[in-house]
Simulated assay, not measured.
Amino acid sequence: METVQTLTAAQIFASDEAFLLIRADLDTRRPRGLHTQDFHEMLWVQNGTVRLHMSGLKRDLTEGDLVFIAPDQPHAIQGKGDAAIVVSLAIRPGVIRAIGNRHEDLTGLAFWAGGATPAVTHRDIRQLADLNTAALKLERSPRDKLYLEAFLLPLLTALDRAPDGLHQGAPDWLIHALSAARDPAVFRQGAAGFVALCGRAHPHVSRTMRRYTGQTPVEYINAQRMAHAARCLTGTADSISDIADSCGLPNLSHFHKTFLAAFGETPQKYRTARQRDLVQPRG
């Protein structure tokens, strides 16, 4: 595959289009060559198996795999077997750059990952269903930047993000678990639920956690619980017992002790000080 074709936005987009969404059944024949483009593209496997060809590399993708292709990244796709279907979202030049300029937290993620090859991540069955529902809504909307961003931002915020301070080289399974553990549905299950999410033996998870984060599973999960508790204390009128229960710590004594260790204040004192300072600032 030495031939590299170049696609341009002028060939793909009408003058008033910010994006183009296409569903495609893939040919199983090996592509004649790679291609590059001067616009961004996101595609995901909706059904079957797909082979992603890159410069000197190839990678097989399955249902739920999501690919972020930046300009000037040579690639081609090929169906593997029957009923290989992908959804492709082509995005007019400048749109992704503008989003990245407004949201520096996106650095290193998705289109902003850098590197010579496209970034690949995975959506589970529930996430893929949500993605397809959102894509159907986008498909029926005007092809304006407003509707495109309304589609992209929820997706981007849901992608796995390595926590601050994570040492370089952490395995993908750990990054996924650390990101997922910010969800109350996960941290309510405690360290055991976190380890189950990792899909590895507890001793291996603990060693890997200490190596790349300096924390144990219990310490990381409790940090997520207390961050959630702090948000609830300042942003809701929920009772402290209800907040403790939502953290997966129904024992109030244990909840108070864990919160005090994290913030140096009791939950009630933390709530009272911050709610008053926000609504009625002290001069």
Rank of each mutant, 00 (worst) to 15 (best):
D38N: 11
F39S: 00
F39N: 07
H40E: 15
H40Y: 12
H40K: 01
E41V: 06
E41R: 06
L43K: 01
L43M: 03
L43H: 06
W44L: 08
V45D: 00
Q46L: 02
Q46Y: 01
N47W: 07
G48R: 02
G48S: 00
T49I: 10
T49W: 09
V50I: 14
V50E: 02
V50K: 04
V50G: 05
V50W: 07
V50N: 03
R51M: 11
R51T: 05
R51N: 12
R51H: 11
H53N: 06
H53R: 09
M54P: 00
M54K: 09
M54H: 13
S55P: 03
G56V: 05
G56H: 02
L57M: 13
K58W: 14
K58I: 04
R59L: 07
R59F: 03
D60L: 04
D60R: 03
D60N: 11
L61M: 01
L61F: 03
T62P: 10
T62H: 08
E63H: 05
E63V: 07
G64Y: 04
G64D: 10
D65G: 01
D65R: 07
L66A: 11
V67W: 09
V67A: 04
F68C: 04
F68D: 09
F68H: 02
I69M: 05
A70H: 10
A70F: 04
A70I: 03
A70L: 05
A70W: 02
A70M: 04
P71L: 09
P71D: 12
D72W: 14
D72I: 02
D72P: 02
D72L: 09
Q73M: 15
Q73F: 06
Q73L: 03
P74D: 07
P74L: 07
H75P: 00
H75G: 01
A76R: 09
A76C: 00
A76G: 09
I77A: 13
I77D: 08
I77L: 15
I77W: 11
I77C: 12
Q78C: 08
Q78Y: 14
G79L: 07
G79H: 13
K80P: 05
K80I: 15
K80E: 10
K80T: 01
K80F: 08
D82Y: 08
D82C: 06
A84Q: 06
A84M: 09
I85R: 12
I85Q: 09
V86H: 06
V86Y: 12
V87E: 06
V87A: 05
V87I: 13
S88D: 14
S88I: 02
S88E: 14
L89P: 01
L89A: 10
L89W: 08
A90D: 09
I91T: 08
R92E: 01
R92G: 01
R92S: 11
P93W: 11
G94D: 13
G94E: 13
G94T: 06
V95H: 10
V95T: 13
I96F: 04
I96G: 03
R97T: 12
R97V: 13
R97F: 15
R97P: 08
R97D: 13
A98C: 06
I99R: 01
I99H: 05
I99W: 08
I99V: 05
N101H: 14
N101T: 11
N101V: 10
N101Q: 15
H103G: 03
H103T: 14
E104C: 14
D105N: 11
D105Q: 12
L106G: 05
T107F: 15
T107P: 03
G108A: 01
G108D: 11
G108T: 00
